[in-house]
Design a protein around this nucleic acid. Structure first.
Length: 596
DNA sequence: ATAGGGTTAG
């Protein structure tokens, strides 16, 4: 038998060297075996090295076995095990390790507590996170930059944005580094507080802290710009990306593709995408989703073909994007083929969102019997099912199938939570069918049950400022409100000369998709919010510039017709982003060819 | 010196 050839003091560097190159279980286990065979008496340091190596290669069962056999476990052993569980997606077990560690009497340090905070972040559990926060205070670790940054992230992931900000504000200015700023920006961006993220980013640049935006901060801010549809700021950030030399970073490329597509600039998304070298599945998915939103179904299919040819595997999100593209382009049978062949062709089993998309697609195309059949046969539950039956209900209204609408409405009402949207659609279905009494009854029952619904609104960005319009209320236009109404009056007159049959303004029984905000008299609406936003845009956006309107609901047929007429009359281009796609109006027609 | 914090597609 070979004599041990290392002394305790020389072993550790050799061990590190062996373990550093070991990213797979086999080589870690081989090193482990060699040590045992050499008869080396393990020290706590060498055991911890091995433990970390097992964790790095994701083999938590081996890590646990080793850990259980370490007698004199120190804070590093415990922390390493916690970190391993967190990294392999088992944060609950990391917390159990923390509890066992405290029970065993070993004191946590800053590394332990930052690891614990990140386990709580993964669990999105603010209650547990608060306990870790308190423990950090007690241990005197609550001023540590990394602990604080982990807490900022933890509160954010748990949805407690104010707590994140309180921790961030409590950090002394020199303690805030680029990671802390990046974490706070990400918190705002991930919690749909885009404007707060934009404000904080501006603060970074004026704070005199001397930190330069890095790709983490830039991608968070771009996603913030996308979520609140702030094109002009997004373009400025794009400029900063190029100046700072981050233009070739894939993550930034994806954020830019997404930002431009959500801000109504599909062409820019294309240009950014074309500059990404060797795009992975995520950039491909983001451009496919962008194409889907603009109704470019053939384009989306071409991108899918291209990625497959290049050996990039699509995933469930990619295929959902492709199906959305089919749905919004009227490629119904192609979309259905995807649903039925995705398992065999791409190895991805359809999940509830794919079924929901297919049902929506059939409904959009007026193939309602098939849609109902698929809806019943799909194993969809919970919130997904609510979305599914809601979209069917919507389709029934559009295709004036009150018989089926009642059926779908019944399904929707079986869900006790969040039924407002469905009930509004039901009411609108009655109104479309000329049954104003039933429509009013739905509203009054909603009023009695205390159900509220977000009012429909549209907004437009002019020189970095957002103007929000609600149906029937032109007040956002401020001093120019009267001018907007006069302009719309004049346009209505010109539209009539070209054959327009509807009415823009005066109150009427609603076949509307939005109520007027007071909920009670909801079946009476005035002019829709997107028309007001457009009227304002025509006054303030210079001629020759595209007017971009954003709406929080689906665009209705009337407004769609109106926008087509007006684009012809004033010879301008409009882009409208509604709840699920974009419409590009130009010379009297729309990019969707009236299919959406 | 063996353990720690932030980002992208739905």
């Amino acid at each position: 038998m070979a004599a041990p050839s290392f002394s305790t003091t020389t072993l550790t560097p050799v061990l590190i060297h062996l373990l550093r190159g070991a990213s797979d279980l086999a080589s870690v286990a081989a090193t482990h075996a060699k040590l045992l065979k050499a008869g080396f008496a393990s020290t706590i340091a060498s055991s911890n090295h091995l433990l970390a190596a097992y964790c790095r290669c994701g083999s938590m069962s081996h890590a646990r076995d080793l850990f259980d056999r370490i007698r004199d476990r120190d804070v590093v052993s415990w922390t390493t095990l916690m970190s391993g569980y967190t990294a392999s997606g088992r944060p609950q077990e990391a917390i159990a390790v923390l509890r066992a560690m405290e029970f065993s009497g070993v004191q946590p340090n800053v590394v332990t507590l930052s690891t614990a905070a990140s386990a709580c972040a993964r669990l999105a559990d603010a209650g547990l996170g608060r306990q870790v926060h308190a423990r950090a205070e007690v241990a005197g670790c609550a001023r540590d930059t990394i602990v604080c940054t982990a807490l900022v992230d933890m509160y954010g992931k748990a949805g407690c944005v104010d707590d994140s900000r309180a921790v961030f504000d409590g950090m002394a200015a020199p303690a805030r580094n680029a990671v802390s700023w990046g974490a706070m920006l990400a918190v705002y961006s991930q919690n749909a507080l885009g404007n707060e993220a934009i404000r904080l980013f501006a603060e970074l640049r004026t704070s005199g802290c001397g930190l330069t935006p890095n790709h983490f901060m830039l991608s968070s801010v771009l996603s913030a710009c996308a979520s609140v549809v702030r094109l002009s700021i997004g373009k400025c950030v794009h400029g900063a990306v190029l100046r700072l030399g981050h233009g070739n970073h894939e993550v930034i490329g994806v954020a830019l593709v997404d930002m431009y597509s959500k801000c109504g600039c599909y062409e820019y998304s294309r240009k950014v995408f074309d500059r990404i070298e060797q795009p992975s599945v995520i950039p491909y998915t983001s451009i496919i989703v962008a194409a889907a939103k603009y109704g470019h179904g053939r384009c989306a299919l071409a991108f899918l073909g291209e990625m497959v040819d290049r050996g990039v595997q699509p995933n469930d999100v990619t295929l959902l994007g492709v199906m959305h593209a089919c749905s919004h382009s009227g490629l119904v049978d192609t979309g259905l083929q995807f649903l039925h062949s995705m398992k065999s062709k791409y190895g991805i089993a359809p999940c509830p969102s794919h079924y929901t998309c297919a049902v929506d697609m059939l409904g959009r195309a007026g193939r309602l019997e098939e849609a109902f059949g698929l809806a019943k046969e799909a194993q969809v539950e919970g919130n997904e099912a609510l979305l599914l039956w809601n979209s069917l209900l919507s389709a029934c209204r559009i295709h004036k199938r009150l018989d089926l609408a009642t059926l779908a409405g019944q399904r929707v009402s079986e869900f006790n939570q969040d039924v407002a949207g469905g009930l509004v659609v039901m009411s609108n279905a009655y109104a479309s069918a000329g049954q104003a009494d039933n429509a009013a009854a739905v509203w009054s029952s909603m009023r009695q049950r205390g159900i509220q619904k977000d009012p429909g609104c549209s907004w437009i960005e002019v020189k970095d400022v957002s103007y929000v319009f609600y149906a029937g209320a032109v007040s956002c236009a401020g001093a120019r409100a009267d001018e907007v109404l006069m302009l719309l009056d004049e346009l209505e007159y010109k539209m009539r000369e070209k054959g327009y049959k509807g009415r823009l303004g005066s109150a009427r029984v609603s076949d509307a998709h939005e109520d007027d905000g007071d909920g009670g008299k909801g079946v009476m609406v005035g002019v829709h919010s997107e028309v007001l936003a457009l009227g304002f845009g025509l006054l303030v956006v210079p001629k020759g510039m595209t007017i971009r309107v954003i709406k929080n609901l689906r665009m209705c047929c009337d407004c769609h017709e109106t926008f087509k007429f007006i684009s012809d009359i004033v010879e301008r281009e409009f882009v409208v982003r509604d709840l699920n796609r974009f419409h590009h109006f130009k010379t009297g027609s729309c990019s969707c060819n009236d299919y959406w």
